[in-house]
C-alpha cells in the first residue's frame, strides 16, 4: 500500500471533515439551545458566503470580508430567530421542521435573486503554499481550515464554560421555564444562539468554497448533508461529538473514494452506514446524552 497516498487522502479527509464539523457545530448549537433541527442552516451559510464574495468583490481583503460577513450573519441569524422561528415557539416539532424547510426554499431563491445565478469565484483566506514533509504534500489551506476549527472549539468552550452569557445559554437549553424565573432573558438568549450559529455557518461557507470549483446556489447542500450526518453521529446535543464525528465522516469519505472501487460515486453510503451502525448500538450518538423515559 502506498503510504504517501494514504496520508494525503487522510489530509484531504481531515480538511473536508473540518468543514463538516464547523457546520455540524452550528447545527448542534441551535439544537442545544432551542431543540430545533435547522434544515435552513446550509442556506443561511450560503447567503453569508455570497455576502463574503460580494464584499471581496468590492475590493476588500478576504480576511476583512469574512469578518464583516460573520458579523452580518450573527445579526441575520438573530433576526431570523425572532421573526421566523419565535412565532412557532409552541408549535409541534414537525411544524417547526416544515417552517425551517420553508426558510430553506426562501433563502436559496433569495440568494439567487440578489446575487445572480452565475458561478462566482471566491479566493481563499489562506496562502496557497505547499509544504513538503518527507514527500507528503501538505497544503497551507488544509492546516488553515484545521486551525480555524480548533479556534472555533476553544472560543465556544470559553464562551459556554467561562462566561456569564454562556452559563445563561446553557441554563436556557436545560430548562427555559426555570431560567425565566431566575431572571435570564430567554428570548435574547435564543436570538444569541441563532446568531452564533449563523456566524459559525458563515465561517464554514468561507472555508468550503475555495476548496470547490465555484460558488453556486447549491454549493452548500451536499456539505449540509454531511454536516447533518456528523451531527447525528456525534449526538445532536454534543459540540465535541459534532467535531469528532465531522472529522470521522470526512476521513471515511475520502478513504472510500480512494480505496473502495464498488462504492465509486455512491460514497455517500459510507457516512450513513456509519451512522446507522452507531445509532443501532448507541441510539443517542457517540457523545450524546441518553434520555430516560418513564411510563
Amino acid at each position: 500500500m502506498d503510504l504517501n497516498l494514504f496520508f494525503s487522502q487522510l489530509l484531504n479527509g481531515l480538511s473536508s471533515g473540518a468543514i463538516y464539523a464547523s457546520l455540524a457545530l452550528a447545527i448542534v448549537l441551535i439544537f442545544r439551545t432551542t431543540g430545533i433541527l435547522n434544515f435552513a442552516q446550509g442556506e443561511m451559510a450560503l447567503f453569508s458566503t455570497y455576502v463574503t464574495w460580494w464584499l471581496a468583490d468590492q475590493g476588500l481583503s478576504i480576511g476583512l470580508a469574512i469578518a464583516i460577513s460573520v458579523a452580518v450573519s450573527f445579526v441575520g441569524g438573530a433576526v431570523i430567530e425572532r421573526v421566523v422561528i419565535r412565532p412557532f415557539e409552541k408549535a409541534s416539532p414537525l411544524v417547526i421542521v416544515i417552517a425551517t424547510l420553508g426558510l430553506f426554499l426562501a433563502l436559496n431563491s433569495l440568494t439567487q435573486v440578489v446575487f445572480g445565478t452565475d458561478a462566482k469565484q471566491l479566493g481563499s483566506a489562506f496562502p496557497d503554499t505547499v509544504w513538503d514533509v518527507w514527500g507528503l504534500r501538505i497544503e497551507a489551506q488544509t492546516i488553515g481550515i484545521l486551525v480555524v476549527l480548533g479556534l472555533e472549539c476553544v472560543a465556544l468552550w470559553v464562551l459556554f464554560q467561562r462566561t456569564r452569557i454562556g452559563l445563561a445559554l446553557r441554563a436556557v437549553a436545560d430548562n427555559p421555564e426555570a431560567s425565566r424565573l431566575l431572571g435570564v432573558r430567554v428570548g435574547t438568549m435564543l436570538m444569541f444562539g441563532w446568531g452564533l450559529s449563523a456566524a459559525l455557518g458563515s465561517l464554514a461557507g468561507a472555508m468550503v468554497v475555495p476548496t470547490t470549483q465555484a460558488l453556486t446556489a447549491s454549493s452548500l447542500q451536499s456539505v449540509l448533508v454531511f454536516a447533518f450526518a456528523a451531527a447525528a453521529l456525534g449526538g445532536f446535543d454534543s459540540p465535541l461529538g459534532a467535531v469528532v464525528a465531522g472529522l470521522i465522516v470526512g476521513i471515511a469519505r475520502a478513504l472510500t473514494i480512494q480505496y473502495i472501487e464498488p462504492l465509486n460515486n455512491i460514497e455517500l453510503v459510507v457516512p450513513f452506514a456509519i451512522i446507522l451502525v452507531v445509532l443501532l448500538v448507541k441510539p443517542a450518538g457517540l457523545f450524546g446524552s441518553t434520555q430516560v423515559e418513564r411510563v
Partner: peptide
C-alpha cells in the same frame, strides 16, 4: 427565481 422565495414565505405564514 423568486417563486420559491414567495412559496417559502407563504408556507411559513400558512403554518
Amino acid at each position: 427565481l423568486l417563486s420559491p422565495a414567495i412559496f417559502g414565505v407563504a408556507l411559513i405564514l400558512l403554518l
